[in-house]
Design a protein around this nucleic acid. Structure first.
Length: 555
RNA sequence: GGCCCCAUGGUCAAGCGGUCAAGACACCGCCCUUUCACGGCGGUAACCCGGGUUCGAUUCCCGGUGGGGUCACCA
């Protein structure tokens, strides 16, 4: 059969040569060792932690090597388009500190290797498919969905491998006339690869391929034998073909993707070879897992909405904290490095694919929270206040006035107990932060705890009225506490906890119980930072007011 | 089911032929302390099983088992 005729029949509108594109997209001029990476999300608008995890790898590899990190939108599936998804992806990633040098962007594509939307690259793909047809390496297939299903069922019945290959590839050798006939009848068709892989042979004769994975080392697997679809009936390529053409033409050096792509690697290898192009370095990352019913499983977009990036945004996790956490699970030596370099920026860490884990990592919220505490404690209070206000803008608008109108007040609150060698690490994420400091705001002040058991209501009253009587807002911390001790002694509570521990029978309790009573009156809870410091922020009026109200409520 | 990947405490993980098998989170105890946190000290807890190779296997090989992934005109 004359493949040139076939190619013309199939693609009369394609006039360019592959060589033209090689010229349009020349090799990049970059310093030696520079890596070119990319993120290729499909625009469903849903990004989860796993995507961010992978994006970090891309970002680090590129930027650590003075390379290029670009964004390519893989919108080859028209059923998966979601309005505004690209904007959501970009802004979401930007929030977490992932920025692109090139590719799809809010203000339009940037860079010389575009277009960066696969849906706009149809001609490019078709040019290469046309070439493959000319060489007899691809062919049209008119099989309907029903026929394909029938083939699969037959294969299942015979316990043979499913798929379109070898003897099952029934349109592999149609004659030109047969093809012409079907085209005249307007039968829809796809273009398939004519795979050169071995099949229908004894197991030991199957040829193997081996690929050096950046993370996993040498991978060995049977070569591809499937006549995979290259171009769908609508003329748009499948992922496999788009990946190979784009990553070649965009001069990607490192393809970072999840391990779920491992099984299709042979397809990509065959495509690269057939097209005569060098393989990029594949880096197959471990999947982020989730524990369910005692078993790990891959994070799923549909089932795990709480792992969407939006979840962390709405809870108010700081982007730095999320990055820090991801970095610790991404590179096993990161935590150690962080211990030794507590104040270095994250970018100073030398990220390597070799140190990446290749088994599935369970997402650990406890760990994220712990890391978040360490990260937040290093952020100055004024910056933290900005963060909190920004968070409130989107997620708690009713709080904005509260925060923004008294910003100095907020900063003081956030700075409470955070100086010195052993700063408090109370803050984890914005929602929790507000919960923690809510008693500073009258509208959100509420009494949650009750007095200690060993303090009678009578004593509590006495303690509070004595406190109110002796209260002097100008007292320093020592003076203030001496007064508390006096109140304790006067009412039968040990002034020093140690005395109480030695002779518990001599006292009703100790000074800690007394201050707890005051805490509950002032803060509504038994746990809080230093009372004196809080009072200084609250101001004399509010302090007296709360004690008085508590006293009144008890009558 | 075929193919592929993975396998060290509850979790994340160092290890890369000889170690009392690091460390972090979580948990427990003690100390510090006016509460809580922070901090300090200490503790419980692991090499999936079976064969090899070797003087010696957590480490190398093979086979099981277990877990995960994937088998689309989705990515």
């Amino acid at each position: 059969m004359d493949y040139n005729n076939l190619a013309e029949l199939l693609f009369p509108h394609i006039t360019r040569d592959p060589e033209d594109y090689e010229k349009i997209y020349p090799e990049r001029k970059l310093p030696p060792g520079a890596k070119v990476t990319r993120l290729g999300p499909s625009p469903t608008g849903f990004i989860h932690l796993g995507n961010l995890y992978g994006a970090f790898v891309d970002e680090r590899l590129a930027h650590q090597s003075d390379g290029v990190f670009y964004l390519r939108i893989e919108d080859t599936d028209d059923k998966r388009q979601v309005e505004g998804a690209v904007e959501a992806i970009i802004s979401s990633l930007e929030f977490f500190g992932v920025t692109f040098d090139e590719g799809a962007a809010l203000e339009g594509d940037k860079g010389d290797y575009g277009p960066y939307y696969q849906s706009q690259r149809a001609e490019i793909y078709q040019t290469y498919v046309k070439q493959l047809v000319q060489r007899g390496q691809a062919y049209p297939c008119f099989c309907t969905e029903e026929e394909l299903t029938a083939i699969r069922e037959e294969q299942e019945r015979l316990k043979e491998n499913p798929g379109y290959y070898g003897k099952w590839a029934r349109h592999r050798n149609l004659t030109l006339e047969e093809i012409q006939n079907r085209m005249e009848q307007k039968m829809p068709f796809v273009i398939r690869l004519r795979s050169q892989g071995t099949h229908d042979c004894p197991e030991e004769d199957v040829r193997m391929i081996s690929v050096e994975d950046g993370i996993r080392g040498t991978l060995t697997m049977p070569e591809n034998d499937q006549d995979v679809v290259l171009l769908k009936a609508n003329g748009i390529p499948t992922y496999h073909f788009a990946h190979v053409v784009d990553d070649h033409l965009m001069r990607t050096t490192h393809v970072v993707r999840g391990a779920e792509w491992l099984p299709s690697l042979p397809i990509h290898v065959e495509l690269f070879r057939t097209l005569g192009w060098p393989l990029p370095v594949y880096c197959h990352t471990a999947q982020l897992m989730k524990m369910e019913d005692g078993n790990k499983r891959k994070l799923s977009k549909r089932k795990d909405p709480e792992l969407s990036l939006d979840y962390y945004r709405s809870e108010g996790y700081h982007p730095k904290a999320v990055r820090e956490y991801l970095l610790t699970i991404l590179n096993s030596n990161y935590e150690e490095w962080r211990l030794e370099n507590p104040d270095s920026p994250q970018e100073a860490f030398d990220f390597t694919v070799e140190k990446m884990s290749n088994s599935g990592t369970l997402f650990d919220l406890d760990k994220l929270n712990d890391i978040s505490k360490d990260v937040l404690v290093k952020i100055p209070a004024d910056e933290l206040s900005e963060f909190l206000i920004n968070w409130a803008k989107t997620y708690r608008p009713e709080l904005i006035d509260l925060f923004a109108e008294q910003k100095e007040y907020l900063i003081k609150i956030l700075d409470l107990g955070r100086q010195g060698d052993k700063p408090r690490k109370d803050f984890i994420f914005a929602r929790q932060m507000f919960e923690f400091i809510s008693y500073f705001y009258d509208d959100y002040f509420k009494t949650e705890d009750v007095y200690p058991e060993n303090v009678s209501d009578e004593d509590a009253k006495t303690i509070l009225s004595s406190y109110l009587e002796s209260y002097d807002h100008r007292d320093d911390q020592v003076q203030w506490f001496d007064k508390i001790r006096e109140i304790a002694s006067a009412n039968g509570y040990a002034a020093k906890p140690k005395d109480y521990k030695k002779n518990p029978e001599l006292y009703k309790g100790h000074v800690g119980d007394v201050s707890t009573v005051i805490r509950i009156a002032l803060m509504g809870r038994a746990m809080s930072p230093d009372i004196w410091e809080i009072q200084q922020i609250l101001g004399e009026e509010t302090t007296r007011d709360r004690i008085q109200k508590r006293l009144a409520a008890q009558k």
